[in-house]
């Protein structure tokens, strides 16, 4: 049996990680604003079905991704209405959002099984693809892979280098203080929720349009929960979200590739690996210095200005 080709492995882990990377990045921004939206799975699957319907209807994968983002954002606005408008409990609302999204997507997806979406082509980099190793790793993907990497950089820049990002963080650390300074807490949180929804929706659309390309009920199969875990794993930092997503996606792909390559490591250990690594990394992170938790201080707390 042949060995695993490292460049092929890295290239496929980059593809496999896109959905959780996009969703985790969006959720991170939402949580930075102090809102815990556990409905990532529901928003992802809404993105998956909305994107699928739009892509099939228009024949354009790009339209599919836009619709996927819109679908995820649309569902997240429901969450915003309930938690920002009616001050409903965020945890309960988020869970309900997932259940609602799963059901609604199954309803919308009636009649869309067995249909093939239009193919998204890989970007043609010409001769760059022929560079040994790097060509396969860096220049053999569809545009969404590059978009997801761009978004990591963009979110990092926004959170750490812009005034708007500072305000967002202030809202997440202490909504009262931000409010006292005259910032519109509800509006900022609304924008953060919608952004998180749109990113989760795009992640979902990536699954139904590129990674699997088809529609099946429950196609996201728990990816949203992994995205949520990655945010904590990354201690709310964009670059660590990238690391976490690639680690998770990478080990899943690696264990399948090891099996296919005829590795002598027992399958049970390979299947366990992603979870073991998570535990190890979490322990390593929390063991380093006895510092305070990295979570935004106002995470999960509703805020109302006339309270």
């Amino acid at each position: 049996m042949g060995d695993i080709n490292l460049s092929v492995l890295i290239a496929s882990l980059m593809v496999a990680s896109v959905p959780i990377l996009l969703a985790a990045l969006g959720e991170m921004v939402t949580e930075k604003a102090g809102v815990l939206n556990l409905g990532v799975e529901g928003m992802m699957i809404m993105g998956a079905i909305c994107g699928f319907i739009a892509a099939v209807g228009t024949g354009s994968p790009l339209a599919g991704f836009i619709a996927g983002a819109a679908g995820g954002a649309g569902l997240s606005l429901l969450f915003a209405l309930l938690t920002l408008g009616f001050l409903a409990n965020q945890v309960a609302t988020g869970l309900a959002l997932t259940l609602f999204g799963l059901g609604l997507s199954a309803l919308m997806g009636q009649g869309y099984t067995g249909i093939k979406p239009p193919a998204t082509v890989e970007i043609d980099f010409g001769t760059l693809t022929d560079i040994p190793f790097l060509g396969r790793v860096l220049f053999s993907h569809d545009w969404v892979v590059y978009f997801s990497l761009f978004m990591v950089a963009a979110v990092w820049w926004f959170i750490t280098r812009t005034r708007a990002g500072l305000v967002l963080r202030a809202v997440g650390e202490s909504a009262e203080a931000a409010h006292a300074l005259g910032y519109k807490v509800a509006r900022i949180r609304l924008a953060a929720i919608a952004f998180g929804g749109a990113m989760a929706g795009m992640g979902g659309a990536y699954i139904s349009l590129i990674r699997v390309p088809q529609w099946t009920d429950g196609i996201t199969a728990g990816a949203g929960w992994i995205a949520l875990a990655i945010v904590v794993f990354a201690s709310w930092r964009p670059v660590r979200v990238l690391v976490g997503a690639y680690l998770f996606g990478g080990i899943t792909v690696l264990q399948l590739n090891l099996q296919a390559a005829g590795s002598s490591i027992p399958v049970e250990y390979l299947s366990m690996a992603p979870y073991l690594v998570t535990i190890v990394v979490l322990v390593a992170i929390s063991a380093g210095k006895g510092r305070k938790t990295d979570a935004p201080a106002a995470l999960g707390q509703n805020f109302h200005s006339v309270r």
Partner: peptide, 19 residues
């Protein structure tokens, strides 16, 4: 180790093709 997980089934197929 699943009956029904489209993304994982697709990843498994991709791993086989890669090999």
């Amino acid at each position: 180790f699943t009956w029904n997980d489209p993304a994982k089934e697709a990843d498994a197929a991709q791993a086989l093709i890669d090999q």
